Structures are given as structure tokens and as C-alpha cells.
Computed example of a mutant assay.
Amino acid sequence: MSDCIQVTDDLGQEITVPFPPQRIISAVPSTTEFLFDLGLGDRVVSRTRFCRYPEQKIQRLPNIGGPKSLDEEKIAWLKPDLILANEEENDQAQIEALMEKYCVYVSKIRNVEDAYNNIVKTGKITGCEAKAREMVKTIQADFAVIPKRAKKMKALYLIWKDPYMCVSRDTFVNSMLEVCGFENCITDGDARYPVVTAETIKGLNPELILLSSEPFPFAEKHKKEFQQIVPGAKIELVDGEMFAWYESHLLQAGGYFTALIKKIH
């Protein structure tokens, strides 16, 4: 019989986790990838509709729906002893309902330090703390050698079209912009993902406009419209996973950011 450990998640709730958990549900695509990278693939009992990695291994798992529309009947059938969720990626009401029936650990990630802490804490509650800490050391080492200019480039990071939406400073993506040596043009306001107009973008006058591949799939054809708004800006398509996935995907991010910065400069 498993022992149990008491932990506090990022929402401040005290939960009792069977240790080590044997039937884990991840309600977030990046977390699913992370669990496999920790070597816990045999304990992951489901995938979400948007889980992508590891491609060959997740196909065998039952689909429990999207992160914001989880299938609670399937979850009940799977009998998880731990559900890993995120306060931004998942629907609050649904997660609160699941908390009444299951052990649910909720993360809250706003910056790179939060991400490091989350990697270690998740590793700890799943019995893989040493491997998780090694991941963090590797990511930190990769980030430490990313080339940066002395003068930061003013950047605008777009995530949606019709209407245009971008990221503010209270986001994990903003933290990744800082890792790259960029300065977010969006400096104030309560909205974490504010809607902006073409006139607003023109007024911000960014030196660099980054068009993310997710959640809206910006493509080469979209670059022209932004070039017309800010003729002097550099426009780049970027891999949204590298900027927004906050767990083991960061192992790939250092090399990606280095190549992106060299291309821009």
C-alpha cells in the first residue's frame, strides 16, 4: 500500500497525495509531455485532446477532452489518484468540482522562477525529484548562455487575430521575452491578454513583432499586414510552445531562443 504525503499547491490548498501516485491524469498538454520526460509514462492514464508529445506513446491513451472541457465521466472511469491541473489552462468551476472527488494539484505559473519551482514540486510529489532538479539545472545553464544585446528590443507578442490580442507583463510568455533580452511593449493595464487595435500597435511602435503559432496559428501570409501597420518593425513567426510551455519543453527552448535572436540581430 502506498504511503501519502501532504503538499500545498500553488493555490494554497493542502492536499494528500498517495506516494508515489500510480494513476496520474494530466489536464494540461505540457504536463503530459513532462510526465513522460520524467519517466512516468506507465503511470499516465489519459491524454487531453491537445496533447502532442510524445506523439507515438500518447496515442494509446484515452482522450478526456480539452483542458477547458474535461470529460468527467471518463475521469471517473479512469480512477485517478492524482490529477495535475493549471489555474490558467483549465476551467476553474470544473477543477473545483473535481477537487471534491479526487486529489487535484493545481499549478500557477507567471514567470520562469514559478516554472522552475513547479518542475521540482511536481517531481517531488510523483517520486522523481532528483530528475526534476537535473532538468532545472540544464534549463538554467542553457538560458545563461543565450546571447543578449545591451539595449533591449521593444517587442510585441501577438497570440490572436480578429481581434488582435497580445501578452502583458503578468504572463509566463513575458518572462520568456525577458529571457531573450526583449522588452514587452505592453507595460500596464489589468488584462493579461489585452485586445489591441492596429492604431494601438502603431502607437506602441515596437521594434519587433512576434507572431505566435498558438493559440492562433499565425503564418507567413499574416506578416504583411503587420508590416503595413509598423513598417520599421522586424516581424517574426515564432513557435508558441517554446514561449508558453513551462515544463520539460523548456529543455528545447534555450537553443531555439539562441537561434531566433541570431536571426533577428
Rank of each mutant, 00 (worst) to 15 (best):
R110M: 13
E214S: 02
N205L: 12
D81W: 07
Q59C: 11
L260P: 05
T31Q: 09
K121H: 14
W77V: 13
F257V: 02
D142A: 15
I58M: 04
L251A: 04
G127V: 12
K262C: 13
Q228R: 07
L208S: 01
A219T: 13
G232N: 10
P215Q: 08
K154W: 02
S46W: 04
S46K: 00
R133S: 14
R47K: 15
L82R: 01
F226T: 09
A97T: 11
I186A: 02
P215S: 03
I25L: 12
E134S: 13
T200F: 08
G127N: 01
I24E: 00
I95H: 00
S107E: 08
E87D: 14
P21I: 03
A141H: 07
Y105F: 07
E236Q: 12
E199T: 02
F182W: 13
I186G: 04
A27C: 10
W160I: 01
A244E: 15
F226K: 06
Y116I: 14
R52I: 12
L251Y: 03
A155Q: 04
E225I: 10
V230A: 03
E241Q: 10
V179A: 10
I146C: 09
G41F: 00
K224H: 08
L208N: 05
Y157T: 14
P62L: 01
R47I: 12
T8F: 14
F257H: 07
I209H: 00
I139L: 03
Y116D: 13
G232Y: 01
M165A: 07
T31H: 05
Q56T: 14
M242I: 05
T200M: 15
D91R: 06
D162N: 15
F36T: 11
A27L: 08
V7G: 06
E129R: 13
A115D: 08
G12M: 01
C166M: 08
P147Q: 04
E89V: 02
V167S: 07
A141M: 09
A150V: 14
T200R: 15
E134G: 12
K74D: 06
D9S: 06
Q94V: 13
G240K: 00
E129W: 04
L158H: 08
K131G: 05
Q56G: 12
W77A: 15
G181V: 02
P206W: 03
P206N: 06
V238G: 04
N205D: 13
T171D: 06
L40K: 00
V112K: 09
Q56E: 15
A93H: 10
L70H: 04
I201Y: 00
A141E: 09
C185H: 00
F218V: 06
E207V: 06
